[in-house]
Simulated scan of single mutants.
Amino acid sequence: MAHIDYYFATISPYTYLAGTRLEEIAAKHGATITYKPLDIIAQFGRTGGTPPKDRHVSRQEYRAQELVRQAKKLGMPFNLQPAHWPTNMAPSSYAFIAAQNAGGGDLGALAHGITKACWVDEKNVAEDEVIRECLEAAGFDPALADSGLLAGAETYARNLEDAVEAGAFGAPFYVVDDGARFWGQDRLEDLDLHLAGKL
């Protein structure tokens, strides 16, 4: 049975555009997933990337066009300039880690719900109330937003180290236990083919 380490950021637009396709692919192939939310800005710094605001204007313009195109292609609502971006990723990441440890809900729905809150619903995913709403909607105890903060902080930091060690340099990033790596929501089809033994 294949296993996938899923590196993502709770404020990443491309993580939002991934939707719940990873979970559908994993279910199709009987693969398991470990979710690893991380600080994508720190990841950029560690792996040779540049935060969006610091990129050359041509790259910023292309990113804006590409995000809108991908959203249309996927039939997903999308706001290119959300009211609360960038924002602090840590609180939602800690809550996600607590939810993964607690179990009982749908982690794919939670990851999508948090990113959708940012990129569609104009909510600040650094706020406890928003995080609680996302937890509850995905079948988790909303009180998880207030628990396990120290463990969450430790795991969050370790996820970044794991990502760097695994060769992950963006989000979403998928690392299969056979060493295959896939970067971006637009590579999910390739991940599917790989798990099927066709790629």
Rank of each mutant, 00 (worst) to 15 (best):
residue 106 D to L: 09
residue 125 V to M: 14
residue 97 I to P: 00
residue 61 E to Y: 04
residue 57 V to Q: 09
residue 57 V to P: 06
residue 104 G to V: 11
residue 93 S to N: 07
residue 81 Q to D: 05
residue 135 L to F: 11
residue 164 V to P: 06
residue 135 L to W: 07
residue 77 P to F: 10
residue 164 V to A: 13
residue 130 V to A: 05
residue 118 C to F: 05
residue 117 A to K: 01
residue 95 A to L: 03
residue 125 V to C: 13
residue 81 Q to V: 15
residue 58 S to L: 15
residue 156 Y to I: 15
residue 162 D to Y: 08
residue 71 A to I: 08
residue 164 V to M: 13
residue 96 F to G: 04
residue 163 A to L: 15
residue 127 E to D: 08
residue 75 G to D: 11
residue 100 Q to S: 14
residue 119 W to F: 14
residue 84 H to G: 07
residue 167 G to W: 13
residue 120 V to N: 15
residue 117 A to M: 10
residue 141 D to N: 05
residue 90 A to W: 08
residue 79 N to H: 09
residue 87 T to I: 09
residue 167 G to A: 12
residue 149 L to A: 13
residue 164 V to F: 08
residue 67 L to N: 09
residue 73 K to H: 13
residue 120 V to P: 02
residue 157 A to N: 10
residue 165 E to Q: 07
residue 91 P to Y: 06
residue 74 L to W: 04
residue 90 A to M: 08
residue 146 D to F: 02
residue 120 V to H: 05
residue 63 R to H: 07
residue 152 G to Y: 04
residue 116 K to F: 03
residue 143 A to K: 08
residue 124 N to R: 14
residue 111 A to W: 00
residue 140 F to N: 01
residue 65 Q to Y: 15
residue 118 C to E: 02
residue 156 Y to N: 14
residue 107 L to K: 07
residue 92 S to D: 09
residue 98 A to L: 14
residue 81 Q to P: 00
residue 67 L to I: 12
residue 76 M to V: 11
residue 110 L to Y: 03
residue 85 W to Q: 05
residue 103 G to D: 03
residue 153 A to C: 06
residue 91 P to K: 08
residue 95 A to K: 01
residue 114 I to S: 03
residue 78 F to I: 07
residue 112 H to Y: 07
residue 65 Q to P: 01
residue 99 A to D: 02
residue 104 G to A: 02
residue 159 N to F: 11
residue 121 D to W: 07
residue 127 E to A: 11
residue 157 A to Q: 08
residue 133 E to S: 15
residue 136 E to L: 09
residue 154 E to C: 07
residue 115 T to N: 14
residue 96 F to T: 13
residue 74 L to P: 05
residue 152 G to M: 04
residue 96 F to A: 14
residue 145 A to S: 04
residue 91 P to D: 10
residue 151 A to W: 01
residue 89 M to S: 15
residue 88 N to H: 10
residue 112 H to A: 12
residue 147 S to L: 03
residue 61 E to P: 00
residue 165 E to W: 04
residue 125 V to Q: 02
